[in-house]
């Protein structure tokens, strides 16, 4: 806080009294408390990286303290940083409660629960294996998801546009849709030449089916007058599909893509049951089998972060493609 007083003397806030970013200070307090508790109180059971976690939490607290002073000076109020202020506080408090209930009081016991430093320890010691797992999962997920949404989209356009296609396709889709991914394993094993192909198939199926269903319903809901307009303008069926049906259905297609994204992540664990040697899903199962739950949580956090990042990316693609919707929604 001395810094702030210095600036005030320098005449910075002569007219307006200097107000530090309040939420930043609270966040610093929450994170600082986590650091103090982690460092100061004895562990009920010994965990890996207690010292490191305490210093990291302390460092974050210092960063927030600095930011609390920088925000009013630099005029960052109303920006991304201050928008997430309450979240920074909540995160610090969450870590504090987590730390106390696991490591310090032992209410949530080993091996089912792990304190934050347990996860940190996993990242410190097993980072190379986790990195390989991320790469393997990325390959499987990328192939499966993009194959799935491409085929799902194409199938959905066909189902929505062509009555004959819908006559045969819709009942099949309705039958296949609710079948859980694990039920496909025997079939997938038999049909596909390798377990990797079978895994790609499962991910593709999980992501493709919602895209197909939503695309088909989007196209069949398009306002008929748009087709009337296109037809009087002399448009071919092909032009109508590309320039009327698909753009009109795109809002629905994106709903399908979001659902497909979530399903594809949920199915990864099952897909990597099929004789995978690496991968986040495999890592989860392997460590569950050994009751190494800290590793399980560590991998889950990575999966959640990757999934959230992909959702974020999909949102920005959607905002770009559906810019014309602004003001309609």
């Amino acid at each position: 806080m001395t810094e702030a007083i210095d600036f005030r003397q320098a005449g910075f806030s002569a007219e307006r009294p200097f107000r530090p970013w309040r939420e930043g200070i609270f966040a610093a307090l929450a994170w600082g408390a986590t650091a103090a508790v982690t460092w100061g109180l004895p562990d009920v059971i010994q965990w890996g990286a207690t010292g490191l976690f305490a210093s990291l939490a302390g460092l974050v607290a210092l960063v927030f303290l600095t930011l609390a002073i920088l925000v009013p000076l630099r005029g960052w109020q109303g920006g991304v940083l201050t928008h997430y202020g309450p979240w920074f506080i909540a995160l610090g408090l969450w870590l504090l409660v987590w730390e106390i209930t696991t490591a310090k009081l032992g209410w949530l016991p080993k091996p089912f629960f792990s304190p934050p430093q347990g996860l940190l320890h996993v990242y410190m010691t097993d980072w190379d294996r986790l990195l390989i797992c991320v790469a393997y999962t990325a390959r499987l997920w990328g192939l499966g998801f993009f194959l799935g949404i491409t085929l799902g989209f194409a199938g959905g356009v066909g189902l929505g546009w062509s009555k004959r296609f819908a006559y045969w396709g819709m009942p099949l889709l309705k039958l296949i849709g609710p079948v859980p991914a694990s039920a496909w394993i025997p079939c997938a094993f038999f049909i596909f030449p390798s377990t990797f192909h079978a895994s790609v198939f499962l991910v593709a199926l999980a992501s493709g089916i919602p895209v197909a269903i939503l695309t088909a319903s989007g196209i069949s809901q398009v306002n008929r007058s748009y087709y009337d307009v296109a037809r009087t303008l002399g448009a071919s069926s092909r032009w109508q599909i590309r320039n009327v049906a698909i753009p009109a259905a795109l809002p629905n297609v994106f709903v399908g893509l979001f659902m497909g994204l979530y399903y594809s992540f949920a199915v990864l664990v099952v897909a990597e049951m099929l004789g995978a040697k690496f991968g986040l899903g495999w890592y989860l199962q392997f460590n569950t089998a050994y009751s190494a739950y800290a590793n399980v949580y560590a991998a889950l956090v990575i999966m959640a972060l990757i999934c959230a990042g992909l959702v974020r990316a999909l949102f920005s693609v959607r905002d770009r493609v559906l810019g014309w919707q602004k003001g309609i929604l």
Binding site: N223, S225, Y226, D228, V229, N243, V244, P247, A248, L250, W324, Q325, I328
Partner: peptide, 10 residues
């Protein structure tokens, strides 16, 4: 038409 039925995405 009575409604302009402009393609909203164009």
């Amino acid at each position: 038409f009575q409604d302009a039925t402009l393609f909203p995405w164009r």
